[in-house]
Nucleic acid binder design. Structure first.
Lengths: 234, 234
DNA sequence: TTTTTTACATAACGCTGTTATGCCAGGCCG
DNA sequence: CGGCCTGGCATAACAGCGTTATGTAAAAAA
């Protein structure tokens, strides 16, 4: 139509269109032809601007993390680090529920078949959680969480909330196990589990935990199905 | 080649081939043509036996849950329900790490673009966790977990472990946050969070939790990106 | 103004799931 | 035994995908 040269807004325009398509019609609408048609151009624009669909999806993932960071930045510091932490959890879930398809692209790989994130992309995403790590540090410093690695605690919270959100988006959580109820219970349980009662509680629970071996890893119901030997035994 | 009629083993043979392809070469090898070529037949076999790729993928999901159930059945009952529960968690993670691609298909939707599970499929998968629910009941009955809904507790554990496993498979967890370390810490924290120390711990933590409002859900950094109004507030 | 760069449109390649057509081996019935 | 008929499978085609080669024309550079 109007082939203007070096249009700096072309990139963000395409990203916006792709985001709208993803939000409105789901992942299957994320095709180069569809995006180009929506933008009134040909599929080549995707390649000149992003080098291919992977590049565009990558930008959308960054956009997704940017939105998450925006939500995080809107969490008001209450002075109570534990309360702040729970708010970060709620913000995380709210972001995922508000942008379900985008969240699926970020973590679930609901994108063009052969797409996979770069290590740098994952690093970028993990960096978004530095806010949570800092909050965990504050919780520990305030004596509300037991002394330990703040990053470890933050990862515990992250993985737990991520798991619930993922299953919630996949419609795996149904009544009467309301996702919101499970979420709030999860939040409380995580705070308690990370809390200062840990040491005493470990006395009653940990003894059983230590009794457990790991012989389960030797059980292989059908070795012929064995996939890549990824399981290193952690 | 040898067009034998009504071969009841054709289905499982195709499933086996598909599972092997998925395990060996990843999700992108899961194509009707590839499977047919591997089976020495044409793509029509996929349609006569499964009605399409979705049907075959569905069967593979069932296969995945069957493997998980097998692992669960190999968890020896130690007499300590909390220890058993932790073992279920380890079995769950072990199954996911042993069959990473299959696990991704089960929950991540790493399958043909437009594929989605039926409500019955999810019900089927959830049924696999009834073992964990029973174990939670035993934990509660033994006074090791605080009184409450066993299904709720089981779902908490499930979502937490699932989240960690998902991020681990997606290479989102890196050193020094070793996934195994996070996992064991998560297990312990979950047991403590669900434990009988909950009531007392809530006294110190819950007060802050109750102070939190939910005003975060009103923050919308960029409404133009708003996706489907899925967020019902749980 | 002339040259070069470069973004884009067009068309094609190889791939995907899916479907219509036709063949041909079985089971069934006369 | 011979003819019919059902149905699984192979072949080929259709629509769509990501990607790429080629050509064109406009913007930047000389």
């Amino acid at each position: 139509m109007s082939p203007r040269r070096s249009d700096p807004q072309a990139r963000s325009a395409l990203i916006d269109i792709a985001a709208g398509l993803l939000a409105g019609e789901g992942p299957q609408a994320l095709s180069a032809r569809r995006i180009a048609a929506e933008a009134g151009s040909s599929t080549m624009t995707v390649y000149t601007n992003f080098g291919g669909m992977s590049g565009l999806v990558r930008e959308m993932v960054h956009e997704g993390f940017a939105r998450l960071e925006t939500y995080f930045s809107h969490v008001a510091t209450t002075g109570d680090p534990v309360a702040d932490m729970a708010m970060y959890g709620r913000a995380y879930r709210h972001n995922a529920l508000t942008n379900p398809h985008l969240y699926a692209v970020m973590f679930g790989g609901a994108s063009p078949a052969g797409f996979s994130l770069t290590a740098e992309d994952r690093q970028h995403g993990r960096y978004t959680l530095s806010t949570v790590v800092e909050c965990a540090s504050r919780c520990i410093a305030a004596g509300r969480f037991r002394p330990g690695d703040a990053e470890l605690v933050a990862h515990q919270l992250w993985t737990a909330v991520h798991g619930l959100v993922t299953l919630e988006l996949g419609d795996y959580l149904i009544e009467p196990c309301n996702a919101g109820v499970v979420f709030e219970a999860q939040l409380t349980g995580l705070m308690v589990g990370a809390g200062d009662t840990f040491a005493s509680a470990t006395r009653s629970v940990g003894s059983s935990l230590e009794r457990m071996g790991k012989e389960i890893v030797n059980v292989d119901p059908d070795p012929s199905y064995g996939e890549s030997p990824r399981h290193g035994g952690g």
